[in-house]
Simulated scan of single mutants.
Amino acid sequence: MPHEIPHSSGLSPIRDARVLEVIQRLNSSRRHPAREAFDGPSRYDAHAFAEYGFSIHPDQGDLIYLLCRAMSAKRVVDFATSIGMSALYFAAAMRDNGGGLVIGSELVEEKAAIARANLADAGLADFADIRVGDARETLRNVGGLVDFALIDGWPSPEGPSLARSVIEIVAPQLRVGGYVLNDNAEPDFIEYIRDPASGFISTTLPIKRGTELALKIA
């Protein structure tokens, strides 16, 4: 059933009513598949869940917006874009910083199309490049140093998680002083980001059952 996820404070740092209207619409129409949908082999197939927009929590979005504004971010990575919730927060920050680009990656073409439509509805289409395909390919070259990256993912039947694979591709493109926010705390992502050799320091925030925020220091 659709349900609303309110902000914990009741107030977003975003002031643009057009952007907030789209965010509110997406929050109020959230739908989640039944738990048993994740029990079979289709749990590893993102296309099997094409009708569901898995999205960040508003508190995560507010944090993304504030940090991007504080650091005057100009180039950010959004994985996975899904229907565009996180891209809206990123793109709003890019515009309010005076210009910039969100490089999004989404495997399911139908979701990417919805994300683009949501960005257009919010007046933010000019600040986003939503790429369709496997992020391990679409994010290999994002055209310059990245200020901030959101790394989410999808379950893998074997081998490293997508979050781990994608951070290994994005990290070399992230500038020193750049941030990485991880949504689902995949164990091998956490292992990577907390390894001193990775060049990051990180902390776990009490948002959405644990959100990892990492800073690149080397």
Rank of each mutant, 00 (worst) to 15 (best):
P2Y: 08
P6H: 05
H7C: 02
S9C: 03
L11S: 11
P13S: 03
R15L: 08
V19C: 01
L20K: 03
L20Y: 01
L20F: 02
I23D: 02
I23Y: 02
I23A: 00
Q24K: 14
R25K: 13
N27V: 01
N27Y: 06
R30Q: 14
H32S: 14
R35C: 01
E36A: 11
D39Q: 07
P41C: 00
H47M: 10
Y52D: 11
Y52K: 10
S55P: 00
S55N: 09
S55L: 13
D59F: 02
D59G: 04
Q60R: 12
L63W: 10
I64M: 14
I64S: 04
Y65L: 00
L67K: 09
R69I: 10
A70F: 10
S72H: 14
S72M: 13
A73F: 08
A73W: 03
R75F: 09
V77S: 10
D78T: 06
F79H: 13
T81M: 12
S86Q: 08
A87W: 03
L88V: 09
F90H: 11
A93Y: 00
A93H: 01
M94H: 12
R95S: 03
R95W: 07
G98P: 11
G99S: 09
G99C: 06
L101C: 13
L101M: 15
V102C: 04
V102E: 03
V102F: 05
V102A: 02
G104Y: 02
E106L: 11
E109Y: 03
E109C: 03
E110Y: 00
E110V: 15
E110T: 15
K111A: 08
A112T: 06
I114P: 03
R116Q: 10
A117F: 00
N118K: 05
L119T: 05
A122T: 01
D126F: 02
D126I: 01
V132G: 05
V132T: 14
G133A: 12
D134R: 13
D134E: 14
N141W: 04
V142N: 05
G143C: 07
L145M: 13
L145C: 00
D147A: 11
D147I: 07
D147N: 10
A149H: 07
L150I: 12
G153D: 03
G153F: 04
E158F: 13
E158R: 13
E158V: 13
S161G: 12
S161P: 12
A163H: 11
R164M: 05
V166W: 04
I169L: 15
V170I: 15
V170A: 06
A171I: 08
P172I: 11
L174S: 06
V176M: 05
G177Q: 04
G178M: 09
Y179F: 15
V180L: 12
L181S: 06
A185H: 05
E186M: 13
E186S: 11
D188E: 13
F189C: 00
E191L: 00
Y192R: 07
I193T: 08
P196L: 10
A197D: 13
G199S: 09
G199H: 02
F200R: 05
F200Q: 03
I201P: 00
S202G: 10
T203I: 14
L205K: 06
R209Q: 13
R209E: 15
R209T: 08
R209C: 09
G210H: 12
E212N: 09
E212P: 00
L213S: 08
A214M: 10
I217Q: 01
A218E: 02
